[in-house]
Write a protein that binds this DNA or RNA. Structure first.
Lengths: 194, 194
DNA sequence: GTGATTTTAGATCGATCGTTATAAAACGAA
DNA sequence: TTCGTTTTATAACGATCGATCTAAAATCAC
């Protein structure tokens, strides 16, 4: 009942996500969003509530579309070293061709300090990535190492992801980005060869 | 000649820096700044030009007051491992008591993508930190290693600094932060013991 | 078709944005 | 003292902010 929605909601969320991803939360106005989404401001508020709520949809969509897809691929790879190599190769390629960095990391810096709910989502998502690294290291070593070392190694690899994304957004050069990715993989190979 | 300035300019820059550091560039209004600096908007524009120019002063002040001071201490330390330990201990303590993160890293995410001049400053400053790590590793190994390894190790340590600061701002827990700091120091000790 | 309901488009809300105009106040030079 | 110069305080500028109102358009149940 009622007039049916004339716009494609998932497509609109993607358009809004691209805008937030590019410019950040504060620098993106509701008019920027309605232009990018090709809908009027009234439709935006009718469908999504307010700016913050739309941003939540966008971040969730980002996590589903990008972060969790990478995690799933890493988990699905039998050879952890191969999986990690593919993971960081893709991350490098994406970071060098798309200088917006990572919406999750950008949000960790810009919105998380002022939004406890989003801060929890950010921390949980980062933990998902760290856990995926941890599982890859468990597969690599068949649990011969104390868990403490694996957790620290997984955190070092998460740290590489974060800084790589920050540096990419700030215009860091390819050599530095590659260097960090190699170090992250070396964490795994070093653990294996111990 | 002319009426003398009634406010302490360096103190005003510090107050503005604290505001930008806390809230970020876009979320800080000129009125927020003039309140924090205890001067009127007219005085602000008279003394600093515009908002962006004031921000440049603030970032320069941050680099001089914090980043370069840490670098100088690391350079001054004869024992590189001790120097790095002190460096990361201080970084941890600062990150856990002050959740604003690092103004340089925050700026890398929020302002560098839209300001080529500030992007150059950000990259140059990150390089200063990386180079300080590199020098510490050179002292540690007395140049027995190929430079390529040292550069990669220095970058891995810079990566730890960046992600540590991002995680701290987003509310990351103490354990994760300590874990990353330990990994960074382990990069140096592993190189030494090779 | 009629009524109920929802989405559309467009105008507009008060608030706030970065910035500037105005003029009084406070100094050094003459 | 008077003049020239700079800073101060206050008010205000046009533009834009996030959000909302009104009314026309589009659908379903009946």
């Amino acid at each position: 009942m009622g007039r049916p929605r004339a716009f494609d909601q998932p497509a609109a969320v993607i358009a809004a996500m691209d805008q937030f991803w590019l410019r950040g939360y504060e620098a993106t106005s509701v008019r920027d969003l309605s232009n990018a989404m090709s809908i009027t401001g009234a439709s935006l508020y009718n469908a999504f509530g307010d700016k913050r709520s739309l941003f939540c949809h966008c971040l969730e969509n980002y996590l589903d579309t990008y972060a969790r897809r990478c995690i799933a691929q890493l988990d699905a790879c039998d050879d952890p070293i191969l999986g990690l190599t593919v993971f960081f190769d893709k991350l490098l390629e994406a970071s060098l061709t798309d200088r917006r960095g990572c919406l999750l990391v950008n949000s960790a810096v810009e919105v998380a300090p002022w939004d406890p709910e989003l801060a929890r989502l950010v921390q949980a998502s980062l933990r998902e990535i760290e856990d995926s690294f941890h599982r890859a290291l468990e597969r690599l070593l068949a649990m011969r190492q104390p868990d403490h070392d694996l957790r620290a190694a997984a955190r070092a690899m998460l740290s590489a992801v974060i800084s790589l994304r920050v540096l990419a957004r700030a215009g860091g050069d390819s050599e530095r980005l590659h260097s960090i990715a190699r170090s992250a993989i070396a964490v795994a190979t070093d653990l294996r060869d111990t």
